[in-house]
Nucleic acid binder design. Sequence first.
DNA 1: TTGAAAGCGCTAACAG
DNA 2: CTGTTAGCGCTTTCAA
Lengths: 355, 355
Amino acid sequence: MAKDQGLRRPATVQDVANLAEVSKATAARALGQYGAVSARVMTKVTAAAAALGYLPNDLARTMTTGRSGTIGVIVGDIENPYFGLAVRGVSDGAKARGFNVVLVNSGEDVAEEKAALEVLVRKQIDGFIIAPAASGDTAHLLNIATIGRPVVLMDREIPALGFDAVVLDDKAAAKRATELLIAAGHTRLSYITAAGMKQHTLCDATGIGLSTVANRIAGFSEALADAGIPDPHRYIRFGVTDRQGAQHVIADLLNLSDRPTAILASDSLIALAILRTTKDVRLIIPRDISLISFHDADWTSATTPSVTVVAQPAYDLGREVVSMLIERIEGLAEPPRRRELPTRLIERESVSAPK
Amino acid sequence: MAKDQGLRRPATVQDVANLAEVSKATAARALGQYGAVSARVMTKVTAAAAALGYLPNDLARTMTTGRSGTIGVIVGDIENPYFGLAVRGVSDGAKARGFNVVLVNSGEDVAEEKAALEVLVRKQIDGFIIAPAASGDTAHLLNIATIGRPVVLMDREIPALGFDAVVLDDKAAAKRATELLIAAGHTRLSYITAAGMKQHTLCDATGIGLSTVANRIAGFSEALADAGIPDPHRYIRFGVTDRQGAQHVIADLLNLSDRPTAILASDSLIALAILRTTKDVRLIIPRDISLISFHDADWTSATTPSVTVVAQPAYDLGREVVSMLIERIEGLAEPPRRRELPTRLIERESVSAPK
DNA sequence: TTGAAAGCGCTAACAG
DNA sequence: CTGTTAGCGCTTTCAA
């Protein structure tokens, strides 16, 4: 008996219409708040819907309207607090305007990014927010635009594609941070970055895969050049993505006979690896080595020493990017827009003069 | 001219069929790998699909099959590294079996949880993984089961609902950690937990909203009782959800004239708040106060002192929970199953004897 | 203001 | 093995 209610087929517009004794079209108009309905019908239909526990089938709605009210977000690593915060900005912004968000991780891998994109297209997503894994190999991104779905780039830009983009002032940020280190007296400075290339080794500025990486290296190098410090690329390390690799690269760096006396880390995960490694090899921050990290992660203010950081407006980045996207979805036709958000240097305890 | 390709209507099965000169049904069979097709037709259709850049419309497919190949995950706070890791386990497991995941944050709020659930039901999600925000107020969860969509509970269980659940051995874990503290000589022990109730104040064990919280408090209290320490609830604090609140509660606790000499933190975010607050009031860990935290967050091994933690198999939790769910989706009809995963105490540097 | 009918893109059931 | 037909639940003409 109780089982009668146990498994019932979900109610449809037709069911509601029957119970309310109106036509399907009328019931649909009342439920979907479009067209025009008399007050009498409105209440009857609403009551019927409530009685049946009616919930609209969004897929059917999307099938006919062509709009899913959903936007797709693809980032490299949601567990990176920087992206985590940005995604929260996106979610909040989307929710505020009645859109849903579906989030996919690309693992900073172009093939996975491509697969993710395909899944989302097949789900008839209205538009995309992407932090692209690489700036070469972008055919899939162009395709997406071809089928009429807007794309906004987040954090990393690819000017050639002509998409809207919201980025940070990475070059200026890197330069400012580097100058702080130089002002403290350092001349052997290292920049360690997660993404950008497969190789950990140094390279000339050509072939850098990500605008953020290229920009920061430009800022870093410029600061060194301005200070007359030679061979700026000497202590730059790329592609430090996994935890293992990070420890290894950092340990190698610290074992150099003329090891760097200051490090700039591209994100809080790298900074963490540096903390761990210095602890392992019994180097004290900032006495033996100074540290500045990109991203004001939660823990950076709680450690001893607390760490000097480049604070990034990640949440605002997300808000901004989603509002740009929604404007496009709603038909905005202007030429591509680009917005650059400022970062801020927060000085704490991890920088001092070299010994 | 170039614009001709600029915006083209996405290709449908019908388009592919026309180009391949077969019927719509045949094209669909070839594309969807079901039914049976001759090799000749198969190649023709495949070629046509490639030529047109055909991508199936998953919504249409779901409409007719009733299966979306997507599972919904609802957690309180994806930025909590514990849940972040669990969700990654879920994603990996789902991907491996050909399912997609859509993730929604509930902000540990029942109303939001309810709204999220509704959105997902409307999208015809195949099944749900939920870390419920509270164990009262569960009508919406029951409803979901009523319409025939399986639910598996993650991390927190609600036995009354009869759902599958995967949880950790919270009680044993709390007891073990507490015993370590007691063995070190502590008698004034505090437990600080994020979720559970609105009030920060102490309470009797009745009306605790979450199984995890109740279980841990049981383990904590039991250890104190076993050691003959009176008034075990004295230093327990609930509902420390936001950063502000955390600082405040902790500061109050540390300002007590007979303040606790050891704290057990319910997650890494609380532990962080403790680190920050002790730093503020110039208390040294572990000299002035010992600390153990639930969750082996990344940073806990990199700080000075590194922090002793209850390591939780969050990733495995996610894997396990998703595999249970998929079995249900694929028709498993057995009675509800419950699985408890073991945690592990990792001793590091944040515990010592009281002064 | 309301109703009837067509159609979104796909798969399922049934013939041939 | 292939084609025809019907229908998923909804919105959208078009008439009434």
